[in-house]
Amino acid sequence: MSDRARESTRAAEPTGFLYPFIDAEERDAGSLLAELAGSARRKIAESQAVRRDALRACAAMIDAAATAMCSSFLAGGRLFTFGNGGSATDARLVTSRFLDPPSGRALPSICLDDDRAVITALANDVGFDVVFARQLRAHARRGDIALGLSTSGGSANVLEAFAAAHDIGLTTVGLAGYDGGSMAVSGHVEHCLVVRSDSVHRIQEAQDALVSELWTQVQRRLDQVDPR
């Protein structure tokens, strides 16, 4: 599209995005592209704002969680991560970052979403609510760390995992969205980082920023306590 065409489509109908076209004869892709790009700009700005707010609101809790995780790692603790759907992939990326970081020290982390044999066996034989809790009861020891992600804060299998983690005596770090959901009031999650948004996508983006900051602070503390 020419710059001139782009300008003319931007000038036209700035509120057009409010009224999705139902006209199958619509043919001006330039107008749609301008609308899409404008929507993307607003979402990018919102994502940045949600992240900034979450990092600010959770600063003290990240500080406390990083201190507890640092102590755990120094005592030989391991980090278990878990979540569902997109949060499962985010959990996997948290484990990758701790276990195989681009810089800093490698730390032991296991993603409970990785083992398809165990997950499907438990889901098939018992139910999906136990797929993380049963793994924690099998693998985790007092002093390890459980980190779970749920945008709603209400995923049953994540909540069951935290209940198990609390029983076993793990350091518990939870990430939730909206108002924190059941995770925030369960009493099983010591460090509950809540992203105050009602968009699953913006929540996940801010959760990624929070766990990234958590990783950075854990590395910094380990360097201070145990310089190499």
Partner: peptide, 30 residues
């Protein structure tokens, strides 16, 4: 260049997740 998702501090690292979330959201709009 950053490892995995999300920047720790806005403006310091890349974010694949935001980009593909946008791709999904805009594809639905089309």
């Amino acid at each position: 260049d950053a490892h995995g998702p999300g920047p720790g501090v806005p403006g310091e690292a890349v974010d694949f997740v935001l980009a593909y979330h946008l791709l999904w959201e805009l594809t639905q709009v089309v």
